[in-house]
Design a protein around this nucleic acid. Structure first.
Lengths: 352, 352
DNA sequence: TTGTACGCGTTATCAT
DNA sequence: ATGATAACGCGTACAA
């Protein structure tokens, strides 16, 4: 340890608690107490220690700290996929979609101020899932926010069995006692139905998402039930996979099968964008000939022409709530399993 | 330690190397060697140990391992902002934009297969930056990929000074000996200029991004220089901030000041989307009255109507390359500072 | 080839 | 109030 004009060096390695203690002439324990702001400390030493900290440029080693406190200050965002799409462009599309970014933004808005960092994990295979749970049980992260893509995902159950603090965004497909934040998707779809009917549409179709994911199936049942209540017992329906291209294709087949269609509910904005393109291409004007209602109120909705009438999905708020829920669960292991359901609203623009 | 039918429990706590060793009747060191696949091991013991691992359900503790190996298997993606936008919706917009997701997707495509996880960090204030560098020097992450938003960012220099393996996506604004992956933005802008001139445009304007960020200023200088070469010494220019709304506003003022405008180069697709809306609103048809060229070839380009002619920005590839560059730098501390520049291409669609 | 013993940097427990 | 000292779980020289 060499001293030159106030600054102190300890060779190549970074200064440790030990170095600070030696410089301040106290024990490691005392320095630790000062750093962590524990009361029982002589004001004199307090200042002495901070001075030594400043002169050495000491920074606590988070790893070493985590090893003993069993707290990492990290929350994992795990994207659970059904299979490993390593050479499949699917995951690429997933990240490029507004969905992923909105979730991350919402999570960060609350984690940032709490000084918690987000670690991104993607699991596709059974092996990856078990490894993830293993790491989690060791406290590699204090808790996890789960984005489950496939219909029947074993991960939620594995997490609860392992006792890992977890919150899902979107309810689990299978009944599992896990915390989650979700949107009343069926109510949102009903909003769309009400609006299309009130508009006077006579033949309304639906472009749905994959039937095995809850958010999608809820929109389907919600829409069909509401339409039925309005006297429309039968609703032509075609499924896409939430991409713009699939929406465009779905619209074409819908139009081909039902030329008199004058309204359509699309399960997400991206597909609605594709539907708009197909409609224009087929010479139909929106909303005069065909009224279109989307879902999500993503950036695509205002980018569309005409701007999309859509069901607002407050994803950022939901992600933020998930983060808060997770943080309280982490601090209170006895917290009961709970869920928060958001109510959707209809945003009226020009397309319907 | 209790044994029941092959399965072994060690009380509440998770099994450690010690537990496995005891069960296998060997020392901790031997178990460690087997786990880490080190040669010099008796095949007999090898099997014995793996058996014990299976029966205990042992999983290595990454934290403890990292503490001694000084390797975390984690790479940090740090988004460096000029100020703390805690209550500013700016960061929310950033995450919702395709840019962020494309970068994450590109990074994950290579990190995933390498079994490396991504930790997201956002730094806005001076304090947050120094804390980040401190943690990084301790090896909280093996390296960092930097996304620098503001014009003059002190972070790159701080990282190189600290000796932290780092790669930037987009060159640093100030000269700093740091690795980076970038696009030849000026060449891309020149492509746009060539195309608009070849199309026969007489009065071409530009909607630019913030002048202090390199990617943006390079597009400006590249475009103006190329236009000058084509005999267009003067190019009317209005600046936006890369959002759709700002693009719409910019287009309106450009149109108001120069009614005879018949071509426009927009510095990114999002603003181009806004420009398209403004043009339609003003009764101009694209590309007949005004030709529009965007930049990025993001999902917005194909979503637009008419589909955008745009300069392709291979962001996913660049991010993947950044990850690879970082990984080799981590393995080889003596790697010379290097950069990779990608060449842009013009994607011709309907808007120009 | 295997085991012993130490170190990684911190917090927590116990005396004092 | 403060200081030894024992964990935390693992890798690895070094010795055997």
């Amino acid at each position: 340890m060499t001293t030159t004009g106030g600054r102190v060096r300890v060779g190549e390695r970074l200064p440790t608690l030990e170095d600070v203690a030696r410089l301040a002439g106290v024990s490691r324990a005392t320095v630790s107490r000062v750093i962590n702001g524990i009361r029982n400390v002589d004001p004199q030493l307090h200042e002495l220690v901070w001075d030594a900290v400043g002169r050495t440029g000491y920074v606590p080693n988070r790893l070493a700290r985590s090893l003993v406190t069993r707290r990492t200050g990290t929350i994992a965002l795990v994207v659970s996929d059904s299979e490993s799409h390593d050479d499949d462009p699917f995951m690429g599309r997933f990240f490029a979609d507004p969905y992923f970014g909105r979730v991350v933004g919402g999570l960060m808005s609350v984690l940032r101020t709490a000084g918690i960092q987000l670690a991104l994990q993607i699991v596709g295979t059974e092996d990856q899932r078990t490894r993830l749970v293993g790491d989690l049980r060791h406290g590699q992260a204090d808790g996890v926010v789960v984005l489950s893509l496939p219909g029947h995902d074993p991960l939620p159950r594995m997490l609860t069995d392992a006792g890992v603090p977890a919150v899902m965004i979107g309810r689990p497909a299978d009944p599992v006692p896990i915390n989650y934040v979700d949107l009343a998707n069926d109510a949102g779809a009903a909003l769309a139905a009400d609006h299309l009917v009130a508009r006077g549409c006579q033949l309304v179709g639906m472009i749905a998402g994959p039937a095995d994911v809850p958010a999608s199936s809820d929109r389907i049942t919600g829409f069909r039930r509401s339409m039925a209540r309005h006297g429309h017992g039968w609703v032509p329906q075609v499924s896409g996979n939430f991409t713009q291209e699939s929406g465009e294709a779905a619209m074409r087949t819908l139009l081909a099968d039902h030329p008199h269609l004058d309204g359509v509910f699309v399960a997400n904005d991206l597909m609605a964008l594709g539907a708009l393109l197909a409609l224009r291409d087929e010479g139909r004007t929106v909303p005069a000939d065909v009224a279109v209602v989307g879902f999500d109120d993503s950036s695509a909705a205002t980018a569309a022409d005409p701007a999309l009438t859509t069901v607002r999905h407050p994803l950022e708020d939901m992600a933020a709530e998930a983060a808060r829920l997770l943080m309280t669960r982490i601090d209170d292991p006895d917290m009961r399993v709970s869920s928060v359901i958001y109510e959707p609203t209809l945003i009226k623009r020009r397309s319907a």
